[in-house]
Nucleic acid binder design. Sequence first.
RNA 1: UCGGGGAUCGUCUAAUGGCAGGACGCAAGACUCUGACUCUUGCUAUCUAGGUUCGAAUCCUAGUCCCCGAACCA
Length: 766
Amino acid sequence: MSSERNDFIRDIIDDDLRTGRHTRVATRFPPEPNGYLHIGHAKAICVDFGIARDYGGTCNLRYDDTNPTKEDVEYVESIEQDVRWLGFAPSAVLFSADYFPRMYELAERLVREGLAYVCDLDDEQIREYRGSLTEPGKPSPFRERSIDENLDLLRRMKAGEFPNNARTLRAKIDMASANMKMRDPLLYRIRHAHHHRTGDAWCIYPMYDYAHPLEDAIEGITHSICTLEFENNRELYDWVLDHTGPWDPRPHQYEMARLALEYTVMSKRKLLQLVEGNYVSGWDDPRMPTIAGMRRRGYSPEAIRAFADMIGVAKANSMVDIGKLEYCVRDELNQNAPRVLGVLRPIEVELVGLPAGGVVTDAPYFPADVGKPGSRPLMIGPHILIDRDDWRDDPPSGYQRLAPGRTIRLRYGPCITAEEVTRRAPDGTVQAIRATVLPETLAGKNPDDGRKVAGVIHWVDAATSLPVEVRLYDRLFKTARPEEGGGDFLEHLDRASLEVVHGARVEASLATAQIGSRWQLERLGYFIVDSEVMPGALVLNRIITLRDTHSAAAAVTAKPASDAAKKPNAKAASRPKSKSPAEYRAEARARDPMLAAAHARIAALGGVTADWADLLTGDRDTAALYETTVGKVGHADLTAKWMINELPRALAGKELADAGLDAIRFAELVKAVAEQRLAAPAAKAALAEMIATGKALGDLAVADVGGGAVDLDSKIQAVIAANPDKAAQYKAGKTGLLGFFVGQVMKTVPGANPSEVNEAVRSRLG
RNA sequence: UCGGGGAUCGUCUAAUGGCAGGACGCAAGACUCUGACUCUUGCUAUCUAGGUUCGAAUCCUAGUCCCCGAACCA
């Protein structure tokens, strides 16, 4: 179920399953139906549905439609379609609006329990009363209304007696909370608006922070995954569940980083700007990062899912290299797109020496290494077309294409030698050339006279090829981070991101190509047959070019290396320096004479530094444990080190007061270490176990100090013998492996003294 | 400490006191009837400074930088 390497969310799930907190896994993907899904959503979908798939659980598609003024049925359909297209089947398709009755009941319950009140403040006043990030808010004048009055007002709100925004229902939490979200958040607002699902049944609508936890709880969601900007909302999420439950299972919210991708923008607002400003042709423009856009571009669901797997799940904000997406797209296409021939900007080539009537060869759809079957006949007649890019009057060195007098191979055809240019445009551009066919190469052999073949180029038969319109799509923006640098992101749009090529030709076999079918035009890139068909011509959208290491290497030198420069953050710079933990401890002592006295006593102890004395007297529990322990066993320095450096890990997040570690048992441990009856690693393990189980040292099965020199040496030799390759690497200079060997030995001889082991291993390995 | 998060190769991400690993990228080479694909080899990282430890990306301390939060949006 859980593979070796997991993301942090799967780690949590593994833990929940192991400890029995949950017996099954239920997730959900909760889009608001107010826009099209984009690649950022695709990541979320892959995480939510992927987890359900991996753990044999469920994942609901739930429309988070709690705001009637922003949402639309139009989006509901596109969203479900996009999810299914990505390859996921929702366990259920649900609507938040269907829970409105239940949510309202629970709102009345909150009112009855004195946990919510109806507030008459308007939006400006509410903001004012809320305070700021650094100042507490002040209570609403309506905060202390009676339960009966609140209930009455809430019912009248629901009954439609008040106009829009006249009153709100608010949770009664804490106007002074450091978390702004907890300063009496709004639960319901009045909206006399038509809802796409509930019609006019409601005129009060729940806010996200109230609705979302309830939706999760009602559906029995176990792991509610959202993005980082909701971290502050989690406290409120928990508050709502704690006061509306009990819920079983009790959902928990986890936050992951949202996707940011180079050369694109992701916000709905900016995407909408691109559409409405006609910078793109619509939501499904092949340059758009929308799922609809990518689908039309020819990106496959497999590629997008592979991309989601590649970038992983974590909590660090990051900007993903667009190259990773492009790699996934190419990787899938390489396996699945049949190869055909097409020419973008034709030069006519008259072929001399071709058998009369031309030649037909059978050309495979896939190269040998892809290994898929299929082929089509390929006609070559006396006139063919090649691409303008494949001709140079004056070829640069290393040019593997055609030039005067050169010989190249026509893909799936014979070798030809260019004889002369027979026609030029007024500007000198080559329009037609004549070339000689080397007949012996028709069957695939190389030229008899041993002349050099410069390369292989693509071509189409002039007589039988088909006209096509080709749309060459590229990245929408010129810069990797169009949203940075202060200016309008639209300034970074690349006008060349779409180039329409007329007059291109493709081989005859494409006459029957279906809309949506994807092909590789050899040496040019991957293309999809667009749903738009021009009169008499197919439309091909370029999905992506082939990887081009040749010209990439040439371009690299020209690229300015300016992108990286970090910008200073004005907000951070202007922010006052916050209080440090050290200041907190100092304040605690100033407030508490007992702590101050303890600090003075501890500082006066021999072997205790001023820093340690400070650290040990930030709170009474710590100070008391330290002083009592030292009072029992002495060893002021050793006790300090263990308390400061080792205790935190052993506590594993617990508060010292809850840890059940008394000075008696801690003193035993320190004493054992001081008297070298217990090696450090064993002592650390013992400490953790004492805290976890509340047992005393004597009741623990602790490894004795042992490992006499002879015994130890044989263990070391056994470990070395079991890892001959690593021993060799160590001798070759990879000294980092010392830790590996010591660790192995420590596992077999838990009570051993590590420094002795260290020394012994070192000398053994020479 | 206003509160909440975060920092590991150029990029994304592993390593839960014991080999800093993988992928993308890049470089060199091999192969090649696609300058593709594939293969081989190589490249580059623990934010800084102290401390604890035989051993620290991981624990402790002090700092630095980044992100989020004051919609009747989600």
